[in-house]
């Protein structure tokens, strides 16, 4: 019998959450449910902060939150451990493997030798599951990969002790204790997840986060050509496309995963009204994809007029309206 069933997912943290919970007998768990219960959808554009010399934009909530919230809502206890030195960290991991306990590990992507070089940037909030060891190689279920993979203990150690922003410090986590999730608890968790997402998208103060953040970015994009010049503006747009579409997002900046969640929620809660919100999120995802295509035609040098920037800024306004409509609808359902 296999010690762990690999489950591929779009996003790493959803995948680890889904995989570990299924392993512990929560068979109904799916990636969209993990994402929705954890209120994973978000938007924020932090001004004055630069990531890789480009704008700091996120389409999802902060790293770690999805796993924590989903487990908490389902009444599942989590054990989290961080380490000062790698010898203790490795010993702890080896003990877990010997006890047949698959564990989630936070790692830096730069040292993951099984990824193609093109993807290996210094990003420290990647998650994977370690569940076996063969001589000096750890057997890894990386949720974004199609198949299980292996990594040497030397490289895994470097990935677990990567440095810089969000340094993982050997972070290991896993569910523990008695796990028994009833249909009632699941329903409550879904409703809590939706309501928290309504709050985050509609009522977060300021104008840079939630749906208002999308409007903020729209205004910025309109000014980028004049303010930054075509070259830097292109790099900025390229960075947005990567944050939005790159491996881990399920496409359209997580909007399609959320639309899938709302469909599953409609079935579990037996409430067809949620399907309408799901349709709006699908529409939003398509609009995000379209904006990415328009951005690509700018940074590929096909069309770099101010008008091309305006088209994207207008699309963002449409996305703003669509997502505002979706979450206003969810709010009006008064789920409880």
């Amino acid at each position: 019998m296999s010690k762990y069933n690999h489950i591929q997912s779009a996003h790493c943290e959803n995948g680890v959450t889904t995989g570990l919970l299924q392993h512990h007998g929560v068979n109904f768990m799916t990636e969209p449910l993990a994402f929705g219960i954890g209120s994973g959808l978000f938007y924020i554009h932090i001004p004055f902060l630069k990531i890789n010399n480009g704008p700091a934009i996120a389409f999802r909530t902060m790293p770690g939150a999805i796993f924590s919230r989903t487990c908490k809502s389902l009444g599942i206890k989590i054990k989290r451990v961080k380490f000062k030195d790698s010898a203790t960290a490795q010993k702890f991991l080896d003990e877990k493997i010997q006890n047949n306990t698959p564990v989630g590990c936070q790692v830096g992507v730069f040292h993951l030798t099984y990824f193609p070089k093109e993807y290996r940037f210094h990003f420290n909030a990647h998650n994977l599951i370690v569940f076996d060891k063969k001589e000096d190689e750890y057997v890894v279920s990386d949720p974004v990969m199609e198949n299980i993979t292996q990594i040497s203990s030397y490289d895994l150690d470097r990935a677990r002790f990567a440095k810089g922003p969000l340094a993982p410090k050997g972070h290991i986590y896993f569910p523990e204790g008695n796990i028994d999730v009833s249909k009632e608890i699941l329903k409550k968790a879904i409703i809590k997840g939706i309501n928290r997402n309504v709050r985050d998208m509609l009522y977060i103060p300021g104008n840079i986060a939630g749906v208002k953040g999308i409007k903020f970015t729209s205004k910025k994009i309109r000014s980028w050509k004049d303010k930054l010049g075509v070259k830097t503006a292109s790099l900025y747009l390229g960075q947005i496309v990567r944050m939005q579409e790159e491996i881990g997002t399920g496409g359209g900046g997580f909007r399609f995963i959320y639309a899938a969640f709302l469909q599953q929620a409609a079935e579990i809660l037996e409430d067809k009204r949620l399907l309408e919100a799901s349709n709006l999120m699908s529409k939003s995802g398509d609009l995000w994809r379209m904006s990415a295509m328009k951005m690509a035609s700018i940074f590929k040098g096909r069309n770099q007029d101010q008008k091309a920037f305006d088209v994207i800024a207008d699309l963002y306004l449409e996305i703003y309206k669509t997502e505002k409509a979706a979450f206003t609808l969810l709010k009006k359902l008064k789920l409880s």
């Binding site: 779009a10 969209p32 990824f115 974004v144 390229g238 491996i247 496409g251 469909q263 690509a296």
Partner: peptide, 30 residues
Amino acid sequence: ISREICYAQNESGEYETGLSKGWEVKKAAL
């Protein structure tokens, strides 16, 4: 090395997962 999971709607509008080899738009960004 690997294909990635995308969420997309089937003919009756239900979400399913599908595998993608890549997308020209994001390759250009990378």
